[in-house]
Computed example of a mutant assay.
Amino acid sequence: MFTGIIETLGEVKHLKKEGENLHITIASGLNPELKIDQSVAHNGVCLTVVALENDAYTVTAIQETLDKTSLGELNVGDKVNLERAMVLGARLDGHIVQGHVDQTATCQNVEEKDGSWIFTFTYDASLNNVTIEKGSITIDGTSLTVVDSKKDTFSVAIIPYTYENTRFNAYKKGTTVNLEFDVIGKYVAKLMKLNT
């Protein structure tokens, strides 16, 4: 379980394909605090630490993960949003995030607004995921509030701190991102579908 509050950015140091799996080695300031078997969200995808080195650690993404997320598009040198699992009893500053990506979206527009930015994304609405204005959405692991919501499009407003300390400063038109829709909203939508 995560909160969607990004702790730091990591950098992809090595990518190794083995069968259908992709081993991703990442350098980050979190490395001294990590241990093998620990869950860490990478651009919103919960992956298990499988190896530790002095300044980097490795996680493995299976084919299903690569098919449903943007992790297969990573290159050496790319920055990755990182968050360790939440600690029970700590504040939940973002919202409840599972680290289970529902689908990807494409950045359609980036608009600078006198000290902040509005990012607009489109996604495949046929998968029955929805956003609502003022509702929560997770983009590459970052907990955000939806500003504008349409059937297959939504926008979020990004403050300077988030812009500077997450991957948002690298997004441009055409960038693919991971989406995790609000878990409470997903359960409500499922219950409504069952009752119709």
Rank of each mutant, 00 (worst) to 15 (best):
T153M: 14
T176I: 13
T106Y: 04
I158W: 06
S136C: 07
D55E: 15
Q103M: 15
Q108N: 15
G99A: 03
T153I: 11
I184W: 12
S155Y: 07
I137E: 14
E164Y: 06
K79A: 11
L52A: 02
Q63A: 04
E83F: 07
H95P: 12
S136T: 11
G77H: 11
Q63Y: 08
E180H: 03
E133S: 08
E180Y: 03
D114V: 10
I137Y: 08
I158E: 11
C107Q: 02
A105T: 11
Y57S: 06
L82A: 07
F119G: 04
V188Y: 10
A90L: 02
Q98M: 05
I139G: 05
T69H: 00
Y161W: 14
A105E: 12
T166M: 05
V130H: 13
G115V: 03
K186L: 11
L88R: 03
Q98N: 13
L82K: 12
V183W: 02
R91E: 10
A157Q: 13
G94Y: 07
K79Y: 12
I139C: 08
T120Q: 12
G135P: 10
Q103S: 13
G115A: 08
V97E: 00
F168R: 10
F168G: 06
K151N: 13
V76W: 01
G185Y: 09
Y171S: 09
D148E: 14
V80R: 06
I132L: 15
T176S: 10
E111N: 08
V101W: 00
L52T: 00
K68W: 03
T176L: 08
E164T: 07
Y171E: 14
L74D: 00
G135F: 09
